[in-house]
Design a protein around this nucleic acid. Sequence first.
DNA 1: CGAGTTTTTGACGGTTTTCAAGGGCGGTGG
DNA 2: CCACCGCCCTTGAAAACCGTCAAAAACTCG
Lengths: 258, 258
Amino acid sequence: MSTRAEETPTQLSAASLQVACAKCGLHDVCLPVGLNDAEVERLDALVVKRQPVERGACLFRAGDRFEALYAVRTGFFKTRTTCEDGREHVTGFQMVGELLGLDGVGTDVHTCDAVALEDAQVCVIPFEKLEDLSREFPGLQHQVHKIMGREIVRDQGVMVLLGSMRAQARVASFLLDLARRLEMRGLSSSALVLRMTRQEIGTFLGLKLETVSRCFSKLQADGLLAVRQRRIQILDPAALRALLSVHPLQAADRALHP
Amino acid sequence: MSTRAEETPTQLSAASLQVACAKCGLHDVCLPVGLNDAEVERLDALVVKRQPVERGACLFRAGDRFEALYAVRTGFFKTRTTCEDGREHVTGFQMVGELLGLDGVGTDVHTCDAVALEDAQVCVIPFEKLEDLSREFPGLQHQVHKIMGREIVRDQGVMVLLGSMRAQARVASFLLDLARRLEMRGLSSSALVLRMTRQEIGTFLGLKLETVSRCFSKLQADGLLAVRQRRIQILDPAALRALLSVHPLQAADRALHP
DNA sequence: CGAGTTTTTGACGGTTTTCAAGGGCGGTGG
DNA sequence: CCACCGCCCTTGAAAACCGTCAAAAACTCG
């Protein structure tokens, strides 16, 4: 496992796969959102290559030179940073239509690994060419900025989660986020099939895998979820949402008289 | 407190303050890094306004329309998000030469408050004009991308801190980060004067203020710091750094035989 | 079908939070 | 100038939460 994607000659014809943002089903959730036809056409000229990534393989690794962004076309990824000492921390999960690689923009070097959690396919977007094109098209330029800006906001949301929520609220938040993203893609927002292990969820949420498992069990016992291994059904989304604002951590009162 | 900056008519002549990135002492740590003379000159034409912000006032607030980035010229800020229920979570501290406002790029609306922790002054950089100019100058465009990219990497570093470090390691990391940033500005990296309260450090690090205080006391008792209220002296930076890789959390072994 | 991984569950211990009280510092007003 | 007051910081003790260790069950893949 963890063989580099480029090293797996599974589909030598990868580069010849036809790409066309204009006709792609992800048109509404991917990079071209909000672009006009002329702009999408130019973007198509730029995104000439699709690349398959086997389950368990890395699309890129920390330390790799940054050259392109990748749009997930099929499959599911995690990004992780490996600390000097071998610990792994998952910084995010990316599904169909989401972008990978923004971590490399700042320093021209990737700072995390992108690992496929199932067989996947990505569209390769050479970043220099994207910069060139976005100087021509204000709409594309704005879209690039928006995508980076949304990533910043997303990261700050995770910071709040990690910094101020209890285990159960973190798990609830994680599931609701996943459900929301699936719904945006027209998929079921109540019947989830997790693509990642408890361990991976745990290092993403700043919890141990046992704690994640216990939270699932507790939420099931309370009737909010039906859990069968990686198949999770959200039975009571409203109650899950209510858990988010329960914060044994950080009391906000005491503004009234001492 | 918390009066909006624009509402404080302390210095009506604010807009008339001369701005010149070319001659600014922050030239080496601020937005113009790496730009050539012509580019800096054009940037000067864009950054026409400085704005004072009183201690305790908000430069912008969550919900405000996003229109500009702000470069801290003097003073010290925190950015915070206030959850629906009134809890506050600090997402970062910004010092001289650092940018504020990137949180608004994604949605055209600010998602956090920027509060001055001491009397401050910022350079206002209208974002639309910055976009216009960066279409002309690839160097500036690249710089804008790099700044956003670095923010993403920084946020992911905070995620790792919050998700996998113990209280003491978080505090050590916080101090070392502060020291590093001061050093980059030619200031002492060993004698720090904190501009924020223990409470604010706590909500940034995902800890209670008492825990932060206890960590300071412990680090002082161990001879790594000298703590006198907000005056903190780093006595043993190497030992502080060593604390970062101590992780009672997340055992990395077990790769060897079961 | 069997080996290995993943998940669940239990008991225990450690870290951090919670609750509470006291002290220091700076600002305001007498 | 000094006293008072509010805010910030420190410290202690008890409790809650989560991590650690361990074992067994369930699932997956070869």
